[in-house]
Amino acid sequence: MTTELDAVERARVEALAKVAAAATFAELAAAETEVLGKRSVIVELRKALGGLDAEGRRVVGQALNAAMTEIGDAVTDRRAAIESVERVARLETERLDLTEFSPRRRRGHLHPFTAAWERLEDVFVGMGFQVAEGPEIETEWFNFGALNFPAGHPARESQDSLWVDWGDPGATLLRTHTSPVQVRTMLAHEPPIYVVCPGRVYRQDTPDATHMPVFHQIEGLVIDKGISLGDLAGTLDSFVKAFFGGAFSSRLRPSYFPFTEPSAEFDVRRPDGSWLELGGCGMVHPNVLRAGGIDPEEWSGFAFGFGIDRFALTRHGVDDLREFWSGDVRFLSQF
């Protein structure tokens, strides 16, 4: 019996050594066959158990089982170890330098004017406004007549306007402001009306750092029952806080526009106490309401308007308006 037990012990030690010596999956598989397979020493010893007495079968059998379990565990452990080494080697062959890279596809760029336009729209939409639009070439009536510019008014005949060869001379022009959309909106919709009208407008201005013959404005129009100058002041203040921030406020200063009365300029007060002149506003003139088919005794309203482009200018610290129209990709791709 001692002889058999010695043989089991030798076989176990030998088997463990072979498993430990396997460096690859193939070697491990070969070692496994050799030490646990049908022709292995262990299996041979098991076959020889029948030749022992009951006590010998029990003692040697236990030793065999323990050896087989130990060898089996060693094979499993060895397999895991080889797996880990192989994975490390494989991953190493996949190593990439992530800075060794040139983008094949670049994002495009929204024009800064569009970005400013959309930001303004979003604030007003949040305040309950909808967005109205109109044509850029307008009739003299929509651009001036319906807006209470009296015949012969200097602005009406002035060379600030760009006129086009459509209809009679002086009948059609590139709109000088977005205000015609006010009248178009009134004619198309019954009040109440809460709209903003962003759009492109034209003046006969020679291009320079702060002027272009084409620029963008946004106009607001509210027509409802009981609308007052206090509603205008409150709405603009609310806009200013929403757009610029809660530390900003606004004020109205009396002014003059043919299409509003009372008319005002509105200024934004920055947190440092300085003022920014933003635009014009006022109560919609009764004659404009009438031109829009609205009874000024039943309804009242206010309107306001200001430029869009300057927001892009100041937001990005650009000092020349002409840059925005240059189409220069070196400029546009910065936004």
Partner: peptide
Amino acid sequence: IEEVGRHFGFERIPKRVPRPTAQAGAL
């Protein structure tokens, strides 16, 4: 009325914010 407003003082007019009741703000 504009003259009354001017000499009352635009800055003294109480501010209110009207809200549309029959539409949602939307594009």
